[in-house]
Amino acid sequence: MGVPALEVLGVSKDFGRIIALRGVTFSVQAGEFVSILGRNGAGKTTLLNIVSGVSRPSEGEVKLFGTDPSDRENKAKLAVISHEMFLYGNLTAIENLEYYSRIYNVPDAKQRVEEVLSDVELTHRRFDLVATYSRGMTQRLTIARALLHEPSLLLLDEPFTGLDQHAIGMLITLLKKQKEMGRTILLTTHDLHTATELSDRYIVISKHKIVKDGLIADTSPDAIREKFFSAEAGGLES
């Protein structure tokens, strides 16, 4: 087995007196699809921020492809999809994507922009300002923006939040395609069914630490819900 795509080694994070993560350790192999499950405030987003290099851990270490996540080479291999759009409302879809393609040095940018727009079915609206898009369309464009530079590692932070059924279906299809292409994917979600449909592995974070790291093949959404998110266990929402 080669160098893992991601290694999280004893990571803790606190914001003053507020503890966000405590001694989190796991690794993700290249091509693996891992879902991080946990209640609101469990520390999932903090973990993704640390993995993406935007935030530094208070303790512990993160390695992306064997090196520091804030290395420029690593950042070029990474894409983040979250509830934040990373788009400019006062630019058109094509202007947004051309901007990011220049930043990420995407080869054959014009063709690649058309490809990703077509993948998310937004070709017909490419010259419209993003501010005029619906929430679902904006999220589809967010996905197109993230896939533009063909990242090796995709970090998805609650990507289904606020999406309509059509957009959720499209995102699931796109994620399956990315998985088939061998991309490494780390997803945080509340949606146990989607997580178990897409992932190879799941990690449950509770009270800022990992309480379960298991294979999806060995379980079911109901079993996960029953064991970690039942009313007795505190529910899925905090």
Partner: peptide, 16 residues
């Protein structure tokens, strides 16, 4: 305008 839609975070993620 960078804060809007999380673009400030997008800047921090850029490989530059």
């Amino acid at each position: 305008l960078e804060k809007e839609n999380g673009n400030l975070r997008a800047m921090a993620l850029m490989p530059v």
